[in-house]
Amino acid sequence: MSSAPISNAPAAGIGLPRGQQRLTGLGSAVATIALLALLAAPLAVYPVFLMKILCFALFATAFNLLLGYVGLLSFGHAAFFGGAAYFTAHAAKVWGFEPLLAVLFGAAGAAAIGLVIGFLAIRRQGIYFAMVTLALSQMVFFVFLQAPFTHGEDGIQNVPRGRLLGLFDLSDTLTMYYFVLAVFVFGFFAAWRIVHSPFGHVLQAIRENENRAVSLGYRVERYKLGAFVMSAFIAGLAGGTKALVFQIATLTDVAWQMSGEVILMTLLGGLGTILGPSVGAGLVVTLQNYLAASGLPVTVVIGVIFVLCVLVFRRGLVGEAIHLLRRRAQGLPRR
């Protein structure tokens, strides 16, 4: 880490002005605590519920990679999430794939769809980009509705969870939980790594000023497409894992409402923050769970929360927290 004698800024602080480097240390502390909490969580909370949160948290993280760090609003991420669910379910049930391989197969399929949709969509900007992704993901939806292997409205049911690497029986809920947690940590770390990589540095420049990036010789379409495919792959990891958790792949996961839900989760938690999408996903899934039992109209309550978020917490929960901490960090006298 400290092979830079020229600069006196520590390497971990790249991209951050000096006053904010303290937050990087805070970040690793939060990560450690969160990981320990997640390892212990199934002792206190129903594991299937936790697994659902983890899947959606990873999905939102993938989505945020694109919107938060490249500035591309995809309104078609359900195609990757739900598409991967179908691929994984089919691979596990019909072809008898080992679960990890089935999930990777699903994610690879999602990345392939992402390559096609991304290739067509990145030629457009702003709202046109969003509309193209929506239109293409609807086409994907109809393909899954019609294709024989998806069994239309029934979906692929009774998907076997299988034995991980032939060793661990995933039909045991706790074992399954730790498998899901491992996938989540991998995907989350991958997204974090991409954001804080040389490639991510260029993405940030493209988001800041696309024309200037072009004039510096960057073929920005390729960078955007690369980010799009990576986001689709991680969304696919989440979707494939979810199919194994619930042992079913249905049209719900490829429908456009799912694309909307992930936007909601990301904005609630905090756009462009590493932790925000996970927090947002946790909040939305929890609300859905508890409100479903209470008899209150779920969509209305979530809608009201969303309106409040837009009006009061524009940066999202985590975004507002970071903003507060930054302001305090700047208020402190320099050493």
Binding site: A12, R193, P198, H201, V202, G226, M230
Partner: peptide
């Protein structure tokens, strides 16, 4: 970054940019 070949590496830490 571009001319030094450090533009597309998404798997490394951006500490290499130092």
């Amino acid at each position: 970054q571009r001319q030094s070949g450090l533009a597309t590496q998404f798997w490394r830490s951006n500490a290499v940019l130092s």
